[in-house]
Amino acid sequence: MSPEELVERIKSLLGEFVKDVKIWKNDYIEVEVDKENIEEVAKRMKEFGFDHVKDLTVVDYMKEGFFRIIYNLGSYDNFELSYYIVGIAYNIPRDKPVTKTLYYTYTSADFQEREAYEAFGIIFEGHPDLRPVLLSPPVAELKPLRKDFVVKEDPEIITKKK
């Protein structure tokens, strides 16, 4: 199956939900949808054959003022589909980072949503167990993967605390 064919099939599957489709380097297809439709889109994609979330990527576009949440879906069962990764992407505003969870459609997104929560402060409504997974609470408060948290290239100067 060529990427163009797959795009056509996804377009016919998702219909009016698709806002934009891009093919990156022949094997990565990015499908942009709206935040409101994400649950329905996920359900349809799962029925189509993309059975697990390979990874959940959040990209912070600070200047434009939004987070882009990308669920990169992959397939285990379907040999043809497994060549491709389909990224279901949608934007949420930076100042109100609240969205819906896909936990009930994709169990494999469980820990990844927690990771996005701790690193970007994005709240996935409906997630049953939204706690930091990798960071300790004081560090998670920094929301370290946001672009406005700047890591200096110079080492921090350590002083003896009294």
Binding site: D51, H52, V53, K54, Y76, S82, T107
Partner: peptide
Amino acid sequence: IELGITGPNLRASGVKYDVRLNH
């Protein structure tokens, strides 16, 4: 498949998926 387990653990469960084969 549902949990997205990967690697030898996935193949030991009967899913023939290996990036070297599929991609």
